[in-house]
Design a protein around this nucleic acid. Structure first.
Lengths: 199, 199, 199, 199
DNA sequence: AATGAATGAGCCTTCATTCAT
DNA sequence: TATGAATGAAGGCTCATTCAT
């Protein structure tokens, strides 16, 4: 006889559900998952506390939705770049393009990324979602590179490493944590590694 | 002028403090910081709730201690490797050695690492500790490579990237998250990148 | 931006808030502020622990509310007496009237008075409230006496002393602490002093 | 098999007990009874936590001792004044002398007085001690006045009221709470009342 | 569907008192 | 006697979730 979560059909409802996700998204970004409470989410969303549980099973369920949207938001632009390439590609241009876009995305999502990623440690579903994200980026990237005539041994391994490197770098770049690092020099080094990986 | 934290001098006390840290360490590893409560830490340590606050200012203080020990534990073995090199080093051997040790450390500490790292997002002291760790590893590594006759442009940037790459790889390797990845091939690729960076 | 206290508008809510104040009032009277805990207040009020913090910021906030109500309750009847006098007043009648009312109020509120007054020593807000109370009684009394044609030097000083005397006496009278005292004789003496002060 | 409280015989012990009482006395004055904890008392007294319970049954027992000393300290000087009078006394001089001494005592003990007095509301023993104090002052004062040839009706009642008035005034005087009051004028008025009471 | 007041288990922390040494 | 580390019950407060309306 447990509360079942409504799957909103009407536009009004979908809108409301989205408002809650947006509020959760903002608050998780600002103060983290454990620093956010459901009353605050409802308030920010402009809905009542109770109705939150009409759309979501529990607080964690909101998190999962936020996570999915986050993943969509960060992966789509990268997929766009990958898919946009036809004919001859200059690898170094592609590397730069991906690097720049990743930095841009990081600037926007870094704090939320940290919050979400941290929960992967204790929440299997969150972890799975991140792995799926990496999977799909790696696979699409690998295929597209092949289609573009790039042929190297151990393609997926290299693509995966490449994406890891790009991610690490973007993180460093955005947070600018280490005073002794010249980040533009570092960026060039990253590009060089990327190019050399696929030549 | 409220209750101050005892700085234990006697062995018995130090032992007890360590038991609490160990309990915290284990529980933070198993169920995360927010999944752990102080009563549980005390129980696991075999002490009373009250005495925990004789050794630590608050729950977060335990976390900070666990963090420091974690950092000591993961950095010391790497520093040992770095310092042990003299005369001619074969870069690829060094790369392998570091890679292997990092994997080994990750196998031991990965879950705790995730938990701790996640708190960096909301706790400045935790964040600072991680940055300091990266700093010291990068600096020591850079100096030692120079001392060993390795001369490349943008040394610190390259060392930093190299360590990032090693970390990312070790994480992947330990969790073995992606079925399509051949991790031994990947490992060789990482080594190749490392070697090419410093040649 | 943490949980804010509801300002109850609906009757039901106001009623509930009042129940909590009443419970606090009773318990503070019976066992003092430090002898009362919030769970007990909630239980006595017939509400849950949590909702107490929906209406009050913290335990002390309940105390402040109880204090304000107490002050209203003890000052209003005195103000009524003061304001009711017109034309010629026989000072000794006024003295008796005030004395009798103060005794009556003391019979009702003495224990609470003690509890509240004791907190003035460590709580500035509580202290301020008591001083304000004395101020307003003294001022209104002084003005009214002047309006009634009573003219003496150092009016406010005398009124203040008079009120102190009345208070002390009422306290003694109600607690009947000293077996060797004949309280009705004492009462007459108080009246005589009061009359002589303003003649 | 409960801990019995030692009655210290040796000088060293008596000294230690006094140190604890002094520490309690100071801390109760500074931060009140509920703001003081036993560890702090022991620390301030320069003894161990445990030994406190060798000399006192519990925390309240320390309070009772502090109370007794307080009472001795505030009553002795008044008794000295009372006893010092022989032959013809000018009432107004006596009034002034008592008033001045009471103010002086208040300046020294007012905070502790508040703290102790507040506990009378919830602790019968404390209350009894205060009543006993008032008793003895009233009785001695009455007798001495009689011996000095002062003969009025309802002596004890008048003495009691007089002492109340003196107390109230000293409290006001020391805390100087009301800006509109001219305390030196008030003092004269108090003297006048006292003199008129016993003429 | 929606509201938001209400619930109550659970958390962190304190502190009077005890006890092994 | 003396120590001070240790105990553990209790307190104030929070918050995910429920429920009467």
């Amino acid at each position: 006889m447990k509360n079942t979560v409504r799957e909103p059909q009407q536009e009004r409802s979908i809108e409301k559900k989205n408002k809650i996700i947006k509020a959760g998204y903002e608050l998780f970004t600002e103060v983290g998952y454990y620093g956010t409470n459901t009353v605050e989410i409802a308030k920010r969303a402009g809905v009542s506390t109770g109705i939150v549980y009409g759309y979501f099973a529990d607080k964690r369920d909101i998190l999962i939705c936020v996570l999915k949207i986050y993943i969509e938001n960060v992966s789509a632009p990268l997929f766009d770049i990958i898919r946009s390439k036809h004919g001859n590609v200059v690898l170094s241009d592609l590397a730069h393009e991906i690097l720049d876009k990743t930095i841009e995305l990081h600037e926007q999502y870094a704090k939320l990324h940290n919050t979400l990623h941290s929960l992967a440690a204790t929440d299997e579903a969150v972890n799975a979602e991140f792995i799926k994200l990496e999977n799909s980026i790696t696979m699409q990237m690998s295929e597209q590179l092949s289609a573009l005539g790039v042929t190297v041994e151990n393609m997926t391994e290299k693509v995966h490493l490449a994406m890891n490197l790009v991610q690490s770098f973007a993180h460093e770049y955005v947070f600018d944590s280490h005073s002794y690092i010249n980040y533009s020099k570092m960026k060039e080094t990253v590009c060089d590694i990327l190019v050399s990986l696929f030549n």
